[in-house]
Amino acid sequence: MKEGNAISADVLAELDDLRVWFPAAGSAPVRAVDGVSLRVRRGETLGLVGESGSGKSTTGLALLRLVDPTSGRVRVAGEDVTGWSRRRLRAVRRRVAMVFQDPQASLDPRHTVAASVAEPLVVHRLVDGADARRRRVAELLDLVGLRPELGERHPHELSGGQRQRVGIARALAGEPDLVVLDEPIASLDLSVQAQIMNLLRRLQRELGLTYLFISHDLAAVEHMSDRVAVMYLGRIVETGDPAQIYREPAHPYTAALLSAVPVADPAVERERRRIILTGDIPSPVDPPSGCRFRTRCPRARADCAETDPALDVVAGDHRAACLYAGEAVREMRATPSA
């Protein structure tokens, strides 16, 4: 996908034909990310959704240059950072921070909460002196809804929701422009998930943050996102605003994902038709020819094995990588058990 040739000032980060392939002993490389192009606009939340193994998290790690691209380009604030050294990347990692799925694993159990939150302040030399550092840590904890005295505790002494708030406070310590949220609510109870999403939205409003929100939870992505990108087997297969994608999906994979999301109204749920996919996600070591979804698509045709579909315009900003975008979805909904 190319959204024009020039990068406009409102584009904070861009991935251009990004590939991240991991070597595998005795076989071809694992194509975790295989030709992804995305633009994250300043001030928005871009939701990146797909099944486990689709390449979502690797895409986020590549944006932070925590994994090295095999090919393609990574730009942050208009600068191509693809080939930058680790030392030079330090400035980028202040501007782009990450909140991980499992706060228990991402926080050093030997460090207090205050020490974990203070680490970016020390690395990026943002405050001078221990007193200023303590004050800033207290401000950050208060910002995410934690009492400053919790700074003396260790991660195992906190609840899951509190630990995730600590992870958010640490991400904000460097005063970033963009925060990559990698499944930030997946390990939390439902009630806590809502609290964390509300916190993230408040912080975005107050601090002018930009988010890349990575999740397999379609309901959370709809709630959080201004735009949505759907990922399958290392590729982006559909993009658009939530209203476009959730009401009128154009790619069969997106339609199948949405049909599996429960509806709160029991009457609607009983009448709703589900689209059942057969088979497993193919191996990223040896993806199918042509359309990568064709081996699971109930409406795949002969030419789907021959042509690798581009991410083309459906309507407005709505794009889909399907030779029969929209048409295949309508056929699947008419005969979902096929």
Rank of each mutant, 00 (worst) to 15 (best):
L18N: 04
F100G: 04
S27N: 14
R41E: 10
E14T: 07
D317N: 15
S289K: 05
P249D: 02
S37T: 15
P23D: 14
A302C: 03
A250R: 04
T239K: 13
V180Q: 05
T112L: 00
L48E: 12
A132Q: 12
Y246K: 07
L146D: 02
L89I: 00
D286N: 15
A325F: 03
A220L: 01
P309L: 06
P69S: 02
P23M: 05
R93G: 03
R201S: 07
L64S: 08
L172A: 06
S337C: 05
G72M: 02
M1Y: 14
E331P: 03
G161A: 03
G43T: 10
P252K: 01
L63S: 11
C322Q: 01
S283K: 07
L258M: 12
L203H: 09
T58Y: 09
L64E: 11
T278Y: 14
G26R: 11
A334Q: 08
V40H: 02
G47T: 01
S54T: 12
D286M: 03
G290T: 12
L207E: 14
G160W: 13
L172M: 12
A24K: 14
A115V: 06
P155I: 10
L233G: 01
K2G: 15
E206R: 02
G4P: 05
G55S: 03
A6C: 06
R247N: 13
R147D: 15
A264E: 14
L15P: 07
S106A: 15
L323I: 10
R296Y: 01
S85E: 01
D226M: 09
S191H: 02
Q193R: 15
T278A: 14
G4C: 06
I245W: 00
A229S: 05
P252H: 07
R205G: 04
T239G: 03
T239N: 03
Y253I: 11
P29D: 04
M98H: 01
R301N: 04
S8H: 13
D128E: 15
I245P: 05
Q195M: 01
D189F: 06
A302R: 09
R319L: 14
P249I: 12
L150D: 12
H124A: 04
D241R: 15
D34M: 03
V76K: 09
L18A: 02
I276R: 15
V49H: 02
P103E: 10
T112N: 01
A130V: 11
A77L: 06
L207A: 13
A243C: 00
Y232T: 07
A130F: 13
R170Y: 02
R202T: 15
P336W: 02
R135M: 09
A114D: 07
L188T: 12
D217G: 06
